[in-house]
Computed example of a mutant assay.
Amino acid sequence: MRQQPVLVYDGDCAFCTSSVRFAERRLRPRCAATPWQFTDLTELGISRRRAEHEVLWVTPTGAVHGGAQAVAKLLLSAPRGWPVVGALLTLPPLRWAAHGVYRLIARNRHRMPGGTAACALPSSPAARKQP
């Protein structure tokens, strides 16, 4: 069994990679961060489609949290005042707002600072099929 949570993100997305690197440097969360492209997704109990769709936080016991709740879990694992922010993001109505903001950013991550065309989510179901 893993000893620490795993943050799974899109390593092909420059915005996602930059965001994770920023979090590692500034927030110092207690987790292992890894691109889904270099991860045994089956071992973590997550599908490729879900990994392509959102950032994921996988606990040592195998619970999976996605999107804004994965960000909240990351903040909860960080030192200093960040756990307070993470806890607030788990409570309604902030949880609902965080979900909406996360979805907006995720859909437009290729337009965000540092984003590239590689950051765009696959546009059709056919493009999402596993090889």
Rank of each mutant, 00 (worst) to 15 (best):
Met1Trp: 04
Gln4Cys: 03
Pro5His: 05
Tyr9Ser: 04
Tyr9Gly: 04
Asp10Arg: 10
Asp10Pro: 02
Asp10Lys: 09
Gly11Tyr: 04
Gly11Arg: 12
Asp12Leu: 07
Cys16Ser: 12
Cys16Pro: 02
Ser18Asp: 10
Ser18Trp: 06
Ser18Ile: 05
Ser19Trp: 02
Ser19Glu: 11
Ser19Asn: 02
Val20His: 02
Arg21Asp: 15
Arg21Phe: 14
Phe22Trp: 10
Phe22Asp: 01
Ala23Leu: 09
Ala23Gly: 05
Ala23Thr: 08
Ala23Glu: 01
Glu24Trp: 10
Arg25Asp: 00
Arg26Phe: 08
Arg26Trp: 11
Leu27Thr: 08
Arg28Met: 09
Arg28Ile: 08
Arg28Pro: 01
Pro29Cys: 08
Cys31Trp: 07
Cys31Leu: 13
Ala32Trp: 13
Pro35Lys: 05
Trp36His: 12
Phe38Trp: 09
Thr39Cys: 14
Thr39Trp: 02
Asp40His: 10
Asp40Gln: 11
Leu41Tyr: 09
Leu44Trp: 02
Leu44Met: 08
Ser47Gly: 12
Ser47Pro: 07
Ser47Cys: 00
Ser47Asp: 13
Arg48Asp: 05
Arg49Leu: 07
Arg50Ala: 09
Ala51Arg: 08
Glu52Tyr: 02
Glu52Lys: 14
His53Arg: 11
Glu54Trp: 03
Leu56Tyr: 01
Leu56Glu: 12
Trp57Met: 06
Thr59Glu: 07
Pro60Ser: 02
Pro60Arg: 08
Pro60Met: 01
Pro60Ile: 00
Thr61Asp: 15
Thr61Lys: 11
Ala63Phe: 10
Ala63Leu: 14
His65Phe: 15
His65Gln: 05
Gly66Pro: 06
Gly67Pro: 01
Gly67Cys: 03
Ala68Leu: 04
Ala68Glu: 04
Gln69Lys: 12
Gln69Glu: 15
Ala70Arg: 03
Ala70Leu: 07
Val71Ala: 10
Ala72Arg: 09
Leu74Gln: 01
Leu74Pro: 03
Leu76Met: 09
Leu76Glu: 01
Ser77Lys: 08
Ser77Phe: 04
Ala78Cys: 15
Ala78Pro: 01
Pro79Leu: 14
Pro79Cys: 15
Pro83Ser: 13
Val84Asp: 01
Gly86Ile: 03
Ala87Pro: 01
Leu88Phe: 13
Leu89Gly: 06
Thr90Phe: 13
Pro93Leu: 02
Pro93Asp: 03
Ala97Trp: 15
Ala97Asp: 04
Ala97Ser: 05
Ala98Cys: 10
Ala98Phe: 11
His99Phe: 13
His99Glu: 15
Gly100Asp: 07
Gly100Thr: 03
Gly100Asn: 08
Gly100Met: 11
Arg103Asn: 10
Leu104Ser: 14
Leu104Thr: 09
Ile105Ser: 06
Ala106Trp: 11
Arg107Leu: 14
Arg107His: 12
Pro113Gln: 07
Thr116Asn: 07
Ala117Gly: 11
Ala117Phe: 08
Ala120Cys: 09
Leu121Asn: 02
Leu121Glu: 00
Pro122Leu: 05
Pro122Lys: 10
Ser123Arg: 14
Ser124Gly: 14
Ala126Asn: 12
Ala127Pro: 00
Ala127Arg: 05
Arg128Pro: 09
Lys129Leu: 15
Lys129Phe: 12
